[in-house]
Amino acid sequence: MEIYLIRHTTPDVAKGICYGQTDLDVTETFAGEVQSILPHLPPGIVAVYSSPLQRCKKLAEALFPQHQVQLHDDLMELNCGTWEMQEWNAIPKTEMQPWLDDFVNVTVPEGESYTQMHSRVINRFEQIAQQARPAVIVAHGGVLRSILAHITDTPLKESFDVFSCHYGCVVKLFLKDGKYEHEMLYNVSLAGKEWHRPTNQ
């Protein structure tokens, strides 16, 4: 039984902006990005799950128009609280530093920590995996890294360095000897380097 993880396409937001659960639209490159993803998807998908944010929902519906997309709030990106849509460089250093020192456990003001996000994501992933049917999860970079860290026993602190997940990437998960392994099928950076912290960090 295979599960495919797909990250949303390029969001319509300027570089250097902190965004998590802000409901960003996609860019004008969306149609082309969809066409780049399609060859890496297999026939026989039974269920499609997605974050409800439109950058994921639109992709899920474009890739699988014949399916009813099942939307789940717990597949949303990290809640960035009061930092949402602020420039990373504009967030006060005194407010940012504790999170930079321990982004896994420190909660974003009025938001959540990576550990809290990881908990809800893995709870949903395990429910999907228990269905034992070919499925797709369309979600966000933090969500994909949470799942990959979970199946590989990678510490969350290392997940951003270990797992490169560009916009539109496709990762296949498959069972081998009772444990999930993963294979990156498509992972091309069209938007250049992302930067989810102040540029002086």
Rank of each mutant, 00 (worst) to 15 (best):
A14N: 13
Y167A: 06
V143A: 06
H196W: 15
T107M: 13
H150L: 08
V108S: 01
Y4H: 07
R55S: 03
H182P: 03
G142W: 00
V46C: 05
Q66L: 05
S119D: 11
M1D: 04
G16F: 02
T22G: 03
P11A: 09
E28F: 09
I122M: 11
E28W: 03
T29E: 14
H196I: 07
E2A: 14
E181N: 13
G178S: 05
V138G: 01
V138L: 12
H196S: 10
N200K: 10
P134D: 01
Y4L: 05
L173R: 04
I6G: 00
V104Y: 01
S164F: 06
G192N: 05
I122C: 10
I128R: 06
N79G: 04
P43F: 00
K172A: 10
N79F: 15
L59F: 07
L190N: 13
V69T: 09
Q68E: 12
S146V: 04
C80H: 09
D74L: 13
S51L: 05
E194S: 14
E61C: 09
A90P: 03
E112Q: 04
M117W: 06
L173W: 07
P52D: 07
C169L: 02
P155T: 07
T154C: 15
H118Q: 12
S119G: 04
A132Q: 13
Q66W: 04
V46A: 09
T22Q: 10
K157M: 15
C165L: 05
T10I: 12
R145I: 11
Y19I: 03
I137P: 00
P52Q: 08
I37Y: 01
K157T: 09
N89Q: 10
H182L: 09
N200E: 13
V136Q: 02
I147L: 07
C18V: 07
T22V: 08
